[in-house]
Design a protein around this nucleic acid. Structure first.
Lengths: 234, 234
DNA sequence: TGTACATCAGTGAACGCGCGTTCACTGATGTAC
DNA sequence: TGTACATCAGTGAACGCGCGTTCACTGATGTAC
């Protein structure tokens, strides 16, 4: 029954956004009276919290399944895209505009950590030398030409070398600020890759789903593909 | 007087998000009665539309001023960041979660075009060969090593070569789908750079402002800086 | 098999709220002759 | 200088709405003896 309530809630969010979620409307839609829902959710906030949690979990689940099937970083990127396109408002509920007051329930943090762990695994697998070299990579390893990843698949199209080369200033920062990695033994370059995976892809997705590319005349999916290569390319 | 209404509206949006905007509350805050505002705005929607337009315009203005002062792509990136951090809810009003029903007023399109024109200018200036080579660059120009941008400033830190090398599959697509550039004679690599500037930087900003990096323990500004280099690096 | 009781999903009325919006109006200010 | 009028910012009452939430309750279902 709770599941049915949530299903109607999603329907409503899909139609008019999360801010328009109304308990009464859901009840009416289910052929129930308003107060009936209070048997299943303490109130509107608890419903929303449950939806946020479910949304998070569905992404984590999709990631976990693909990773267990041996997916690499590039495949994870397409899992993310499919998940986002399948229900834009669900994506926005997790990654969209925050309401100044509201804060996510604490257990979403652990789900986010799970997602991050999967992502870090995939990032660590991209580079041959995935062992953390004690956090002090030789700085100034030279520009892209020195990227050891020249062994990348040659047919993948020249979308630029990997965006993450060893020794950047940001990697030096990450080497000393990695609590978010939850003890994962990834090299700084993998840490950066994970963050950049996240920001670049959600950059495309957020703008695309928000309709910012509408009428511009190019195919957002191709932009996404280019960014996937920029992030997953060895 | 209209300006005063809008000022209070922003205050309210800053405090509780755009969905909580209420005409009555603004009126009360100004010491007026509710209906008084109808002399200045036809209704709530018109107010929001005016705010969206103003937000857009303020970004366009900031871009234009910097560009006229001779700013390069990297400096534009920091203009964007300052603009976003100065008022996150203003950023979200433009680039955040869309309400399924609402659509931006038509004249924001032209403002967006103005922003894009400035951006394209800056992107075209990054690369020496900024003339459009008839849209058919030699495909498969090879991986990053072939990037002509090895002339980039050497001290900028090895954050990877430019993300945009000539001849990517996406550039080939853009060469044939460029109405959004409004006739700007930028090379496909510059077109890609402009889009990537936009998505990568707003990727970091959206997640940062949404609080997704809270408690992770690294400095989002350094991530932003790394992405700026990835986008602006020759 | 029958009776007494507990459980529990759902109802209907009610409260109080703030919202957007309309309408007829007051009262001050400016303008024309 | 004085009178008649137009303009216009703002008011107060009212309408109708849907919301979240509470409360005491009904009525069906299951359970224990």
């Amino acid at each position: 029954v709770q599941e049915e309530v949530k299903a109607h809630a999603w329907e409503q969010i899909r139609a008019a956004g999360a801010s328009a979620l109304s308990l009464s409307a859901i009840a009416k839609q289910m052929g129930l009276s308003g107060p009936a829902l209070y048997r299943y959710f303490a109130g509107r906030d608890e419903l929303i919290t449950a939806l946020v949690r479910d949304a998070y979990r569905s992404l984590a689940e999709a990631f976990r399944l693909q990773a267990e099937a041996g997916a690499d970083l590039e495949e994870l990127a397409w899992v993310l895209r499919r998940w986002a396109l399948a229900d834009p408002q669900r994506y926005f509920l997790v990654y969209g505009t925050p309401v100044p007051g509201y804060e996510a329930p604490p257990d979403t943090t652990s789900i986010a950590a799970e997602i991050m762990a999967v992502l870090l695994d995939a990032c660590a697998a991209v580079e041959p030398a995935s062992v953390d070299p004690a956090g002090d990579e030789p700085a100034g390893a030279g520009p892209a030409g020195a990227d050891p990843a020249s062994a990348e698949p040659a047919g993948a199209g020249p979308a630029g070398g990997g965006p993450v080369v060893a020794g950047s200033a940001f990697q030096a920062h990450l080497a000393g600020h990695r609590p978010w990695a939850g003890g994962h033994p990834a090299a700084p370059s993998a840490l950066e890759r994970a963050l950049v995976f996240w920001t670049r892809l959600s950059g495309v997705l957020s703008l695309e789903l928000a309709g910012q590319f509408a009428g511009m005349g190019f195919d957002p999916e191709q932009l996404y593909a280019a960014e996937v290569r920029s992030v997953a390319g060895g």
